[in-house]
Design a protein around this nucleic acid. Structure first.
Lengths: 124, 124
DNA sequence: TGCCAATTGCAAAATACTTGCAATTATAAA
DNA sequence: TTTATAATTGCAAGTATTTTGCAATTGGCA
């Protein structure tokens, strides 16, 4: 099911802000913060609505969030994978990665997030 | 090198707020947020100083920070490991876990962080 | 096309975090 | 042990980030 189908399926409208943010995020190669989304959509959308839209899209599993180790919350439209961020210039790269764990007995695991930090060649 | 040696070594003083926060964090079994540290030290320390102290201790590698998937920043005194947090009641548990990745060619990997979220038995 | 609930933009509020500065304190030298 | 001094603190104000109430607008359906 694609993004628009998921929205309709949950009986949400496809509004202008939702269309613009969805379109913006699907074009990005790396995860983006709220303020990058706000700036990247040329401030066509009020920031309160950016927060509300991103929250909704995330709750429907259309976009995903991630904390990278520079202490900011990022959003991405692709299915969640892993990233490394440069401590100095904040450059972000995708990272092929394998995580193994024995699910804890008294928890149902819903999601996991892995991020790495380091220095990229031009900063080190 | 223990916490106090690390402080002295970097020529920082062992002040009352630093001692209290260090003592508080080393007693905790699970990571704590700024406001939990503030409350847990019985507000003996101004909140600006809590922020400053935690930032300093972290920069010296005496404590560590972690974002759990309930969107809050946590601090812990033990060497960093992994946690799962309940989406509903925010209960936290430690998680034995193994992470494997091929270090990216153009990055020096400094640290990694893995966190999981789910529902604990009493919430599901 | 027109209706109506959902959604938006705006402004204000709440929360989270940072900073400048005078008063205080930990350390080391006397 | 006392004193000098630079580091550190608490306070209060400032900035940044996120949330909320509400009137105006809009998307989807009849």
């Amino acid at each position: 099911m694609n993004a628009i189908a998921k929205l309709k399926n949950a009986s949400y409208k496809l509004t202008r802000p939702r269309r613009i943010i969805l379109n913006f995020l699907t074009k990005q190669r790396t995860p983006k913060t709220i303020s990058e989304i706000y700036a990247g959509t040329k401030r066509q959308i009020d920031q309160a609505s950016v927060y509300r839209t991103v929250e909704l899209l995330q709750s429907l599993g259309i976009i995903y969030d991630e904390y990278l180790l520079d202490d900011h919350r990022y959003y991405l439209a692709e299915s969640p994978h892993h990233h490394i961020v440069c401590r100095h210039c904040h450059k972000i790269e995708c990272l092929p990665c394998h995580v193994e764990f024995t699910p804890p007995k008294d928890f149902t695991v819903i999601a996991h997030s892995l991020s790495l930090t380091g220095l990229c060649t031009s900063c080190s």
